[in-house]
Amino acid sequence: MTRFARTFAAVLGIGTLLVAGASMGGLAAAPDQPKKTTICLLPKKKGLPYFTTCAKGAQEAAKELGVELIYDGPTDGSPEKAASMVDRWALQKVDVIAVSPNDPQVLGTAMKKARDKGIKVITWDADAAADSRLFLVNQATAKDIGYALIDAMAKDIGGGGGEEPAGEVAIITATLTAANQNEWIKHMKERLEKYPKLKLVATKPSNEDQRLAFQVAQDLMKAHPDLKGIFGISSVAFPGAAEAVKQAGKTGKVLVTGLATPNDMKAYVHEGTVKSVVLWNTVDLGYLTVRAAHALANGTLKAGDTTLEAGRLGTKKIEGDQILLGQVLVFTKDNIDQFDF
């Protein structure tokens, strides 16, 4: 018997075993059991404090409502892995999948597939194509975020004295391919037109690496001596850039802003490296998402509704297919200590 034949026989044998195992599992009878509503919450990247605080709010709501909450996402933020998770949840026939898409196209395809299987799919935190989900739990659109970042920077540079903000600014983003950040940058550039004296001189990737963001910020300050502001628009790019400014002794001369949970940036805000931090209440975002998902699962929330009863958050407005959380918060020296998340 040749080696090839042996190999072939082995493949055949294992295949048979697989099929046998599979059919055995399939043949077993399935007794009916009362099924708890299951809601899956997918973050862009697991392990970020931003999403961990969202998950806290989500768990709070799940406890109140007595639903089963599954919180899982790729630890490396890979959209492909996130899409695989949506595929799996769809096959497990969960009730609602709430997705924060790290890449709207990649996730959108998987979400459509899940919807074809009859799963209710919503987005939260960030959006995907409108036909891939029923509702968006909207804390802020990409446009809101982009505009808020530029406005905060303009206010910080202008010093609030009514004079026109002027100077060079730079962006440190996550990766060049990061879909959400690219969308924000698009709107940031749009908003910059309102401030003709603010000039964007560079947009550099930091590959989700704090050290790299630190180095890029250092290089930017030296290469552009007139730099007035740095946007750190990915999770670790913000503290990385702030630390670079602080260590270069340019606190107050080069301002840093970005998105972060207040607890993580408190120190920088108090010492003045960072004047404004843009974000929203992440705990409430997670809470609202699970509330909306639950309402969708038991049929109390339907397309066309204009309000949603959201537990401790009270009644929330729905505009079209968007459930609104509320305003974008800007944390400054004066108010940051009032928040703890």
């Binding site: 970020l48 704090q210 050290r211 630190f214 990385g240 920088y268």
Partner: peptide, 9 residues
């Protein structure tokens, strides 16, 4: 050297 320790270091 950095102010934050996170899991992606």
């Amino acid at each position: 050297q950095q102010s934050v320790i996170e899991s992606g270091i």
